[in-house]
Design a protein around this nucleic acid. Structure first.
Ligand SMILES: [Zn+2]
Ligand SMILES: [Zn+2]
Ligand SMILES: [Zn+2]
Ligand SMILES: [Zn+2]
Lengths: 163, 163
DNA sequence: TTCAAATATGTTACATTATAACGTATGTTG
DNA sequence: CAACATACGTTATAATGTAACATATTTGAA
């Protein structure tokens, strides 16, 4: 058993994740828990190979498939998201911090990437989703999954220096 | 001079692209024209290394930087788009087929990726853009560039076989 | 309990996508 | 022509992601 090397807040979220998995009959194993913990503790999106480095603190010989398999699982469970523009991963705030009903399953979300500080904010805006559904229905396209990523400057970075 | 090995329709679009470049003081060189032609003639998004293979029909020793530099230029000019989820490129229908006023500069667009036939449709839907702007303004985020990609099934694929 | 099936992980090797760094050619301007 | 900027050639390597197969662990019966 690997384990409790994370901050208390992270452990709380990991426990929530574990319950979500149990609720759909999947298992948040030690390895998956550790990868999720590494994602959650990062202030910013983390790349797969950064996670691999993190893993290697515990498991010396870890290799890429180890981390990619854990990431695939966490994506399936809706516990993390991939930011395509960054080839990097973030924890799902919707699933782990809120107490939303349908948490723990993949869901549509939007991501705001600040080019100033690197932070990513997850939105769950129905207006955007509806606009997308509406526009696509007009041409007979049926959306199964959507990726919405906006790059720009967050409120903090706008207030502070540039501009 | 490399050159006129493309279908007539493609040449027409390439000529339009050349005029757009000239209009902003940039040059659609033979190499860039050829890469753009390869993108335009593909029925689907093309990867950089597929383009490289295409280039090598003419220029034997072409290497990755050759095609990536051309792609960077074409992206800057708004003549092509990158589909992040596919790491692949498509021609901008907005810039080359329509006769829109602001064609030839990067613009917000949305892409519908059909998992049935692989085709990608470019939308330029203001509703989606406005919903995004509206949602982000509420939290003080200023959008500079947005990526919207939806995966699903196109009308043709829906009508045909699988549900 | 004991075995078989399913699930999860270890391990090696490789595929795909993208860029750094530096040299050469070409074009533009005075 | 000289000086500069832009574009392209070339080599090497970085970064991201998978295929394939071996081993271990869990699960659920027999
Ligand atoms: Zn989420
Ligand atoms: Zn910021
Ligand atoms: Zn476009
Ligand atoms: Zn289709």
């Amino acid at each position: 058993m690997a384990g409790t090397i994370f901050a208390e807040k992270t452990e709380t979220r990991l426990n929530a994740a574990e319950r979500l998995c149990a609720a759909h009959g999947s298992r948040l194993t030690d390895l998956r828990r550790q990868v999720l913990g590494l994602v959650l503790e990062a202030a910013r999106p983390v790349g797969a190979y950064d996670l691999l480095d993190g893993l290697r603190a515990d498991k010396k010989g870890a290799a890429p498939p180890t981390v990619y398999r854990a990431l695939d699982f966490l994506l399936e469970e809706g516990l993390i998201h991939k930011i395509e523009r960054l080839s990097a991963f973030v924890g799902c705030t919707h699933a782990l911090d809120g107490s939303h009903a349908e948490a723990g399953h993949p869901h549509a979300a939007q991501f705001l990437i600040c080019t100033g500080c690197g932070q990513v904010t997850e939105l769950d805006d129905h207006g955007i989703l509806h606009a997308l559904i509406h526009a696509t229905r007009q041409i007979g396209f049926m959306v199964r999954h959507s990726t919405v990523e906006a790059e720009g400057l967050c409120a903090a970075c706008l207030g502070g220096a540039a501009l």
